[in-house]
Write a protein that binds this DNA or RNA. Sequence first.
DNA 1: TATAGTGTTATCGG
DNA 2: ACCGATAACACTAT
Length: 264
Amino acid sequence: MPELPEVESARSVIERSALKRTIVAVDDTDSYVCRPHPPGQIRDALVGTELIAAHRRGKTMWCDTATGPVLGLHLGMSGKIVIADADGHEVDGGDHWEYGRAPGDYRFSRFALTFADGGVLRLLDPRRLGRVRLDPRLDDLGPDAATMTGAQFARALTGRAPIKARLLDQHALAGVGNLLADEILWRAKLNPARPVDAITDPERRRLYRALHTTIEEALRNGGVHTLPLVPERRPGGQCPRDHTPLVHGAVGGRTTYWCPKHQL
DNA sequence: TATAGTGTTATCGG
DNA sequence: ACCGATAACACTAT
């Protein structure tokens, strides 16, 4: 579910609704999501302090605390941030949910902060591929895909990998996931398997423009599912431009859909 | 019952 | 060391 636009809405939920609230309890007992921290370590580091800022680069979020370490949050494949008030009512809903979850269903709560007023911030994550950790390393992340410059983008496009594999490489640029990559390449009319070193300068500029317009549109409209190609990524899907049947295969190890007529 | 999957990372081979 | 491909991770929905 979460790619850069969804993570950004999760970050803004935290920013609006979880800052400057004293933390009185922490559930960090899911040792898979909280690894490598042993149960209790994150709790002991956070109880008594408060979040004071929420940041994001690519799909990684981190929160500064008033007196403790930085709290790193990653949503993985199925993670979602939900905040409830003391009465249990969920506030500040962000992105939509893929696993048919109803409000109040906390079966998949993997991490939780309880605030002094009784409110609770939860990380829900059925597949448990999300991550919570103290003082996360950010050095390995490339520049944020939403704000990177054309020069940074050109720097990211060296080597011989398929262009889609490079767009997915979080070391090269941070934030593009499988759905965004297909959408961006479709808009730029580039074949996902094209080697990076076969991309011409005009094509790279087209791709850079598609990167930004696609992310902006997804942010504005409420997520990657609102983009035109995404709902067509299924057997029988058609090119939104001219209804050519899309073809699919694996590129960069991920399921990939593209239009055989436009994407060359 | 079998399979795919919107992310990351360790491991293997060139 | 660099680069890319692949498997593994955990669990649900189809």
